[in-house]
């Protein structure tokens, strides 16, 4: 996979370079969080706007990528207010359509993620897409390690129901 080189250990040069190096991964993270390309575009743009507004501080930060990732996640959680009653997280699995029996037309992962509670979805994306530890995820979301594990477990349980061919045991 052609990911941009990590900027975790080196300070970024210009803002443009930083966006070009980190933008694709941030955008893909946004798509997984939003489940909507249009909204993901807006979220990514809003994130980098905030980064630009504080660029002097961000580029001096220990880890500008982590900062940007945090802004992205927090902006998304905040952004949800705009659509609060649009995306109703479904708590009861029986309300969900059953997974399609044909594996070739199985439920798309992004769609399945969008059916999780947003807070649970954030945990899954941070843990399994961005490869953050439980502790890093907890710190970013401002919750405890225990709550993070609980949300993760709940999310995986739901994903397992929607995507039965997924090896979630190995993932968790």
């Amino acid at each position: 996979m052609a990911e941009a080189p990590s900027l975790d250990e080196q300070p970024p040069g210009s803002f443009e370079e930083f966006v070009h190096a980190t933008g694709p991964r941030m955008y893909r993270t946004a798509v997984l969080l939003c489940g909507d390309h249009h909204l993901a575009e807006d979220l990514t743009q809003a994130t980098y706007a905030k980064v630009f507004a504080s660029w002097g501080r961000v580029r001096r930060a220990d880890n500008p990528v982590a900062y940007t990732r945090t802004v992205l996640t927090r902006t998304w959680l905040s952004h949800r207010r705009l659509r609060r009653t649009t995306e109703q997280p479904v708590d009861d699995l029986p309300d969900l359509p059953a997974p399609h029996p044909d594996p070739g037309t199985r439920l798309d992962l992004v769609e399945a993620l969008s059916r999780l509670r947003p807070e649970d979805r954030a945990v899954v994306v941070l843990r399994f897409y961005l490869d953050l530890s439980v502790n890093q995820t907890a710190q970013l979301l401002g919750i405890s390690d225990v709550a993070t594990r609980k949300r993760c477990s709940r999310a995986l349980e739901r994903l397992r129901s929607m995507l039965p061919d997924l090896d979630l045991e190995a993932s968790s």
Partner: peptide, 8 residues
């Protein structure tokens, strides 16, 4: 993205 983020 860079240009729009700069503007915002």
């Amino acid at each position: 993205l860079t240009q729009a983020a700069r503007r915002r």
